[in-house]
Amino acid sequence: MAAYIQARNVNLTFRPPNRAPVRALGNFDIDVAEGEFVSIVGPSGCGKSTFLNILLGLIKPDSGDILMHGKKLSGPGTDRAMVFQDFGLLPWRTVEHNIELGLELKKVPAAKRRAIAARLSALVGLAGFEHHYPHELSGGMKQRVGLARALATDPDVLLMDEPFAALDAQTRDLMQVELLRVWREAKKTVLFVTHQIDEAIYLSDRVMVMSKRPGRAKKTFAIDLPRPREYEMRVTPQFNELKLEIWNTLKDEIVV
């Protein structure tokens, strides 16, 4: 299967003013197939979120080739959308208007925007909250808005940057189940960055472990657990073996 997203030898060095330059990514490679759910785990500051921002088109790498659907990546585009860690909702807009943001920038007519927002509110479980402001929502609800907003422009690729990191443990578990449901229905290619090995295994087709800075692909694990996945799967021996294996690969990279 030809890779849908293909990154080769991506390098990026940050040069903050008055501080030493930081090499964030060093010869980073990744391949993601269409419709695949791939997670990236790695130590803090290894450049995994940076890579998502590069894919999103917000940061330009110093060197390296990134192909999407065989075409070279250039700037932001509606074929990709990000779900941000801290939600990134516009606080002065209601749920509905937050979901419509990307459509508005695509100049989709208002009536059509409203219809899409209504459909997606229902899909992510926000029906009835369309006219609430973000500060009136719980963290889990906010991220449902973030997810709906990302889906609204109907992108091919969903980039998720530790989307559940700001949520409490129970909400997080629930959101993972919800995400799998939405993913089944929406049929997107997902690149998911997380710190949690459990989360990565439970959600993904493949899990990539990154090295510490400068980040590169250390090892990729195929997760051959059957789908649809039930929550109970997390206590099976197979799951725990994978978890231990990934942890053993990851732990050498963690700098305390």
């Binding site: 940050f14 903050p16 930081v22 964030a24 500051g45 979120s49 940076t50 921002n53 917000l58 940061i59």
Partner: peptide
């Protein structure tokens, strides 16, 4: 080093 600082 968060990713956000870069964009400044």
């Amino acid at each position: 080093m968060t990713e956000q600082t870069v964009i400044q």
